[in-house]
């Protein structure tokens, strides 16, 4: 447990999910935790590698596990897809001698000595409630888990696949209110957004309608692709005649960073497509209360 953590941001956190990256950094800093970036990390293959080739799907993420093992660190993830692929590769190489041999033949040697931790479970263990400086009082949050973080069939997800509660605990620790709703683990359609935007609009419409019915002020996500789909497809998906404003879609770490007192201007709220400015302003002034 005393092993240092190295952060594995993943490709999306360098582009469409930059706000996730910034807010993970701010959150860790506010908690006094450090995690340097894993040196020379590569793409985990996301959904595309297993779509095309079963060995590529294991060996691409496994290279990062091997790097971490050689550097003597455990891995900290934020992106749900990265976490999923790293966990699957770790499980596969621990349990299949044949796959471990194959990976070695491809230049990737991993012996199962790395723990893959998601930032959400780190936050759950961090004693957040005692460190909050600006409670997010009055903010009603719909916690959206999506698929890949809780459903990792063989290796095991970070929480119960049907009824997870970890994100709700983190949101409550921030002083915010949890909106009970039923679309928490529904699928947003992932990368079908590019070849089949119509399908993804339909799925997003169903999810946001549930969040709205639960009177949420925003949806909190743990996956850059979920965030992008919900943020991007919402304007077009919502029935214009209803005349209701779209729901802001934030990363869970934007909320924790806010609550821990980080400067809202450094959390990327201006990069949201659905205006998230009112979420940035939701944190009460230190000591002021609301």
């Amino acid at each position: 447990m005393a092993r240092a953590l190295a952060f594995y941001p993943g490709c999306s956190l360098e582009s469409t999910g930059v706000m996730y990256h910034a807010s993970v950094r701010s959150t860790l800093q506010a908690l006094g935790l450090s995690a340097r970036e894993l040196d020379d990390w590569n793409c985990c293959g996301a959904t595309s590698a297993h779509f095309v080739d079963p060995e590529l799907a294991i060996v691409l993420p496994a290279r990062n596990l091997a790097l971490a093992e050689a550097q003597g660190v455990d891995l900290l993830t934020a992106c749900a897809a990265c976490h999923h692929r790293l966990a699957v590769a770790d499980h596969e190489l621990r349990t299949s001698e044949a796959m471990a041999d194959r990976a070695r033949a491809l230049g990737v040697s991993y012996h199962g000595g790395v723990r893959v931790r998601h930032v959400l479970s780190l936050l759950d263990d961090a004693g957040l409630a005692g460190k909050v400086r600006r409670p997010l009082a009055g903010l009603r949050v719909a916690c959206y888990y999506g698929c890949l973080l809780v459903r990792i069939p063989k290796a095991g997800g970070i929480d119960d696949p049907e009824d997870p509660s970890i994100m709700e605990r983190v949101v409550r620790a921030c002083g915010a209110e949890v909106a009970p709703w039923q679309a928490r683990t529904w699928c947003c359609g992932a990368s079908l957004a590019v070849p089949e935007p119509g399908i993804v609009q339909g799925l997003v419409r169903a999810i946001t309608a549930e969040a709205r019915a639960a009177r949420a002020d925003c949806i909190a996500t743990v996956c850059p692709l979920c965030q992008l789909n919900l943020d991007l497809q919402q304007e077009t998906a919502e029935d214009a005649s209803e005349g209701r404003p779209p729901l802001p879609v934030v990363f869970i770490t934007q909320l924790t960073a806010l609550a821990l007192g980080a400067d809202p201007r450094r959390l990327g709220f201006e990069r949201h497509i659905v205006d998230a400015g009112r979420i940035a302003g939701a944190a009460a002034v230190p000591g002021g209360g609301r």
């Binding site: 490709c11 999306s12 990368s191």
Partner: peptide, 16 residues
């Protein structure tokens, strides 16, 4: 779509 994704990974080591 998936093959283009993987092509960028193959070129750069990370998706673009």
């Amino acid at each position: 779509f998936h093959r283009w994704f993987l092509w960028t990974v193959r070129m750069f080591g990370r998706a673009h």
